[in-house]
Amino acid sequence: MKIIDFRPEHVLSIKPQACQQYLDLTIAYGEYLMTGNCFTGIHAGEVVAIGGLLPVSDGRAYLHMIVSEGMPHQWTKLYRAASRLIGAVRDDYDRIETLSITPEADRWLELLGFEYEGTLRRVMPGGTDAKSYSIVRQ
């Protein structure tokens, strides 16, 4: 996988995994993602991942990741890209937060240094629960 700078039109090319089918992948959404720091993962010429950090408020950001259905095993490269991004902006934020709905994402977030905070009940589309994770600057 090759990690490149994100462009809004990348959201039109990704075919998200089943648990992310609720996302409204439009150019407007891509432009919203551009308000933060974002990257794209390309494998065999196809967009297979889009991730980054979105500012929420002063001192607070949200980590997001869209992964394509059937993405080949490329988690190490995504980990490195996310880790570099978090490291580059860590001093800009007091808190970086995210949500997880799969055990695989839980493990990946913990490797990135996120700590589990609790479960948010019925917070996702369709009423699914999500686990809340964060990195809080000391």
Rank of each mutant, 00 (worst) to 15 (best):
residue 97 E to H: 04
residue 72 P to W: 00
residue 89 V to Q: 04
residue 67 V to W: 02
residue 119 T to H: 02
residue 109 L to N: 14
residue 59 G to K: 00
residue 113 G to A: 03
residue 43 H to K: 07
residue 65 M to Q: 12
residue 77 K to T: 13
residue 112 L to Q: 08
residue 85 L to E: 06
residue 116 Y to A: 02
residue 44 A to N: 15
residue 42 I to Q: 13
residue 48 V to C: 04
residue 114 F to V: 08
residue 81 A to Q: 07
residue 112 L to M: 03
residue 65 M to A: 11
residue 95 R to W: 00
residue 56 V to R: 15
residue 68 S to L: 05
residue 78 L to S: 06
residue 78 L to K: 02
residue 81 A to C: 07
residue 73 H to V: 06
residue 81 A to F: 06
residue 76 T to G: 08
residue 80 R to V: 13
residue 45 G to E: 13
residue 37 N to Q: 09
residue 45 G to S: 12
residue 46 E to S: 14
residue 112 L to S: 08
residue 39 F to W: 12
residue 63 L to P: 04
residue 49 A to Q: 07
residue 76 T to Q: 13
residue 64 H to A: 10
residue 48 V to M: 06
residue 119 T to S: 02
residue 78 L to G: 10
residue 116 Y to E: 05
residue 109 L to C: 10
residue 117 E to K: 01
residue 81 A to R: 09
residue 97 E to K: 02
residue 54 L to H: 15
residue 70 G to Q: 05
residue 70 G to K: 04
residue 109 L to Y: 14
residue 77 K to N: 12
residue 115 E to D: 12
residue 101 I to H: 13
residue 75 W to G: 07
residue 118 G to F: 01
residue 45 G to F: 13
residue 77 K to G: 15
residue 74 Q to N: 05
residue 115 E to A: 14
residue 112 L to W: 00
residue 101 I to L: 10
residue 103 P to Y: 02
residue 69 E to T: 06
residue 47 V to M: 08
residue 81 A to W: 05
residue 67 V to H: 00
residue 78 L to E: 04
residue 74 Q to A: 07
residue 41 G to N: 09
residue 100 S to N: 10
residue 87 G to I: 08
residue 44 A to E: 14
residue 70 G to H: 04
residue 48 V to K: 06
residue 65 M to C: 11
residue 53 L to H: 02
residue 106 D to Y: 01
residue 49 A to L: 09
residue 49 A to Y: 09
residue 54 L to T: 13
residue 67 V to K: 06
residue 100 S to A: 14
residue 95 R to K: 09
residue 37 N to T: 09
residue 72 P to I: 05
residue 106 D to T: 06
residue 93 Y to I: 03
residue 101 I to E: 14
residue 93 Y to N: 01
residue 40 T to Q: 05
residue 106 D to A: 03
residue 84 R to D: 15
residue 63 L to S: 11
residue 43 H to C: 09
residue 115 E to V: 11
residue 51 G to A: 14
residue 41 G to Q: 11
residue 80 R to L: 15
residue 46 E to F: 03
residue 58 D to P: 04
residue 61 A to R: 03
residue 68 S to H: 07
residue 47 V to S: 09
residue 84 R to T: 15
residue 56 V to S: 12
residue 75 W to K: 09
residue 61 A to E: 07
